[in-house]
């Protein structure tokens, strides 16, 4: 009799301690499901934690979505939507609504920046060879070639009608400045639709979007790559609870000829790369804006960047051509956790 009572009591006590421990463990920081890979022509990393226990399914779906986006937005992949549009010879073409929206966004952004941002530089990019990952194909073209290619550029030659688009004057679209940021937005939406209180991040080739704060209440600490440093060399840090961050720079795809650096971003007026900044990192609520703003800023230079950032509410950190770091007042909000 006594023994059974003791056994029952012990079980009861152990159960109570167990319940306390389990509640404590359940409230512990969530475990992140992390997956890395190559997609969208770049290194991709996702970290995702959700109470719905379907993190792997969602992350796999995100990878699939990236593949689909690449099939739409990669102008150098035959059979992609954008490739077809670039080769539609000025005819009206019904395009995927996502491509339509991004094109619309790009041309609107071009207007907003008075053409410093221009999505129609496809032919210039191809001329320099920066459309490939192969450094042997990157080259300095003759000035006559550049002026020839420049004739077939201009965001005004992108026309919209209903759900159709046409490209006049033989322009080629290259959305390299904006596609990664757009993909960040799409994937963030997917993750949040699955579980609005989920947490983690998406990192598409250095364009980062925050799904939710780390462990539910802490910021993600994000390093800003030193444009003249090694891969892991950070020049500054920011702490993000939400939002997106993107960097444009002159240090991944570039050639140096006669002591001068030429890289994959071009001034639509000259067809050469601008010499304003080594890099610019931007923080905003939208990935597509962060991404596009950086490219526009590289071309526009310091004064215009300051002006645009006030209108658009973008925080930035600029490393200028002398290596000096310059930030705006919005950036200060992210410097401390």
């Amino acid at each position: 009799m006594r023994k059974t009572r003791v056994v029952i009591l012990s079980i009861f006590t152990l159960a109570l301690v167990g319940v306390v421990l389990v509640t404590v463990i359940l409230k512990r920081p969530p475990q992140y499901y992390i997956q890395q890979g190559i997609a969208f022509g770049t290194d991709v990393k996702f970290a995702y934690a959700t109470k719905k226990r379907n993190a792997k399914i969602v992350v796999d779906a995100m990878f699939d979505e990236l593949k689909k986006l690449d099939n739409i937005f990669n102008p150098y992949r035959e059979k992609s939507e954008l490739y077809k549009l670039n080769h539609s010879n000025g005819k009206w073409m019904k395009v995927d609504p996502r491509l339509f929206n991004v094109l619309k966004y790009s041309t609107d952004f071009s207007k907003e920046t008075n053409g410093e941002f221009d999505p129609t530089l496809g032919k210039v990019v191809v001329l320099w060879g920066f459309n490939t990952d192969d450094p042997n194909k990157w080259r300095l073209p003759q000035p006559s070639e550049i002026s020839g290619a420049l004739k077939h550029t201009g965001y005004k030659y992108v026309e919209f009608k209903g759900n159709k688009v046409r490209l006049l004057n033989g322009v080629w679209i290259d959305l390299g400045a904006i596609a990664k940021g757009y993909a960040v937005d799409v994937l963030l939406k997917m993750a949040k639709m699955n579980d609005p209180s989920s947490s983690g991040y998406v990192d598409i080739g250095g364009d980062i979007g925050i799904i939710g704060p780390k462990y539910g209440n802490q910021p993600w600490k994000i390093g800003i790559r030193n444009p003249r440093g090694t891969i892991n060399d950070a020049i500054a840090h920011v702490y993000l609870y939400k939002g997106t961050i993107a960097t444009s720079g002159d240090y991944e795809r570039f050639i140096i000829k006669n002591g001068k650096r030429y890289y994959h971003i071009f001034d639509p007026k000259t067809g050469y790369s601008p010499n304003n900044f080594e890099s610019i990192t931007t923080i905003s609520t939208s990935g597509i804006l962060s991404d596009a703003f950086g490219t526009a800023a590289m071309v526009g230079g310091m004064e215009k960047t300051q002006k645009w950032s006030k209108g658009l509410g973008v925080a930035y950190l600029i490393v200028d051509e002398k290596g000096h770091v310059e930030t705006n007042s919005l950036w200060k909000n992210y410097e401390e956790p």
Binding site: R2, S10, T13
Partner: peptide
């Protein structure tokens, strides 16, 4: 309260064990 409840349960178990 939670502390005392758990401590009473353990004390009682310890007494019987």
């Amino acid at each position: 309260l939670l502390g005392s409840v758990s401590s009473v349960l353990l004390m009682y178990t310890s007494l019987k064990t």
